[in-house]
Design a protein around this nucleic acid. Structure first.
Lengths: 325, 325
DNA sequence: TTGTAAGCGTTATCAG
DNA sequence: CTGATAACGCTTACAA
């Protein structure tokens, strides 16, 4: 079903149908005839033809590289919320860690003439982002800072710093920090460094802190902390880079000490304020990030960029809330 | 940058460029010249023009209506995995509960000439799905059964039945079931009915089971179960429709009994096998669903539908695994 | 193997 | 207000 067919049925020109759809000059009479024809035929205009002609898709491409589920769905929901209210659509794509997959996904978004791209990622931004810059498509990066691009992210360093400060550590406290390995700067290095700096502030020397490293799953945290405890070391605090790792740590502690609240059991902290963890093990010290707000802000910045392409790049750092202390 | 410009630069016709891109007859010499021109110009072909011409987008639209985060991201990841390996792209859209939003999103997918649509939803399928049927676009529904459509879903009734059977209930056990309210059949009615049927099998009369209802969050579960316990009733088992609700229940129990393992404290079960919950409170009886496999199966069925449009609708019911008993 | 040319369904320009 | 008509960038007969 096309423009023309509807026009014929309504006894008008195809231009009139187009005007009907886009709100141009049109007599009331034709307006009604066209509406009836559309209703009758179930006509759906072709976005491809429109985009081809207008060179504007009014669509923002969003690439979500796999991380924390609650972060991803929070950000996505903030983005959709903002864009839905405005005049933009979104086209989301999940991608895994695979570089090839990311590149292919980016290409396919570019081919669709999207007006802007939002990259939600805690992993390094792929070099293919150059494609967009060459194509003069505005880019917003969520979750990390990339030099030369507009970014929205959380202050992971500050959050970790404040969290460490809020713990009731004394200079004598025996502290372990369980890092998450890999290329994820915000979850990894940023939190670790902020944490150590925060500890330093309350008098815990850095070389007194046992730092070890694990993966992203609950089970990774479990195994790592079990080993840590099996080594015979004793800790007052085991601080984890994510709530999932913290959950694993709690399991290891329970196995060793019988209960996570045993008097000699180490206290555990995490990041992310997972509601299930807080309910079952809480309150445990953690940090809450408002992912939905993050999505909304990223969308706002994209719209700014779209309105004024000459605008200089910005970097927005969002706050956080230390909980459970 | 267009077809033609690249052609000119390479000294060939635009048809040759098209052949280069799509793998048609082409001399090695021109092939090289075109490759060089593309490289040099950073040319990206317009998908819109191609789709307009070929009437095939090789893209599957996916609508994810907001539910359980782990379900959503699992299904999405299964879908992407399958389609990425094949020759299809995907275009995801998150939508909230809002009917208007769903309708708008569906329209915009239709306008883009997607080849098929996958609806991931535990909420009722909106009537707008008719749009697709009218447009003869293949539809696969994930998460529930809709008469007349191809569906992939989990056997929630069976899972609940088996879970109830696996609990060590006796005819004398005092059992509460915490339902999740609302229009979500699979999480709500299916699990509740299956559970009650399973209890019946082990001799627990239905009218001995206290059924109450709450929302989807941890806090909903907490408040409901707190009230339940405050009423003075005593239970051996409190079985919850989701792991989030179960986490809330555990919090309420801990408050009342001091510990979730107190000898008189009710045992709790959930659905979803949340790794954090299992680590911290576990093992607690729950059911594991393989969401990624669900996504893969849905993608497979879509591809079947695409290959053979005359194929009759199918309904696939996936299994589950009872854990923590 | 190659090029020419006719659309695909829109929208925008330009006369009426 | 309205209707022809020319693009938009691509693929694909068809002809060479």
């Amino acid at each position: 079903m096309t423009n023309k067919e509807v026009a014929e049925l309504a006894g008008v020109s195809s231009a009139a149908v187009s005007r009907f759809l886009n709100g141009g000059y049109l007599s009331e009479e034709k307006r009604e005839r066209i509406a009836a024809a559309i209703e009758q035929t179930g006509y759906v205009p072709s976005a491809n033809a429109r985009i081809l002609r207008t060179k504007k898709s009014d669509t923002i491409g969003v690439i979500l590289t796999k991380t924390d589920e609650s972060a991803m769905s929070g950000v996505a929901s903030g983005l959709e919320k903002y864009f839905f209210a405005g005049d933009y659509g979104t086209s989301l794509a999940y991608v895994g860690d695979d570089i090839k997959e990311q590149a292919k996904t980016m290409r396919s978004l570019l081919e669709r003439q999207i007006d802007g791209i939002i990259l939600v990622s805690s992993a390094p931004v792929p070099g293919d982002i150059d494609l967009y810059i060459r194509a003069r498509v505005p880019v917003v990066v969520v979750g990390q800072h990339v030099h030369g691009l507009t970014c929205v992210r959380f202050d992971n360093f500050g959050a970790a710093y404040d969290l460490a400060s809020a713990l009731r550590c004394t200079p004598e406290s025996r502290v372990a920090y369980v890092d998450v390995a890999g290329k994820y700067r915000s979850f990894g290095a940023d939190r670790r460094k902020g944490f150590l700096a925060g500890l330093e502030r309350v008098g815990v020397e850095e070389d007194r802190v046992k730092v070890c490293s694990t993966g992203f799953t609950v089970n990774d945290g479990y195994k790592t902390v079990r080993e840590l405890l099996a080594s015979g070391s004793v800790f007052d605090y085991i601080c984890c880079a994510t709530d999932s790792v913290a959950a694993g740590a709690l399991k290891a502690i329970r196995e060793r000490y019988g209960s996570i609240t045993a008097s000699r059991a180490p206290k555990v902290s995490g990041f992310g304020d997972d509601p299930i963890l807080q309910a079952v093990a809480g309150p445990i010290p953690s940090v809450r990030f408002d992912y939905e707000e993050c999505g909304i802000k990223a969308a706002e910045m994209m719209v700014d960029l779209l309105k004024d392409r000459t605008r200089t790049n910005m970097s927005l750092v969002l706050g956080y809330q230390v909980v459970g202390v």
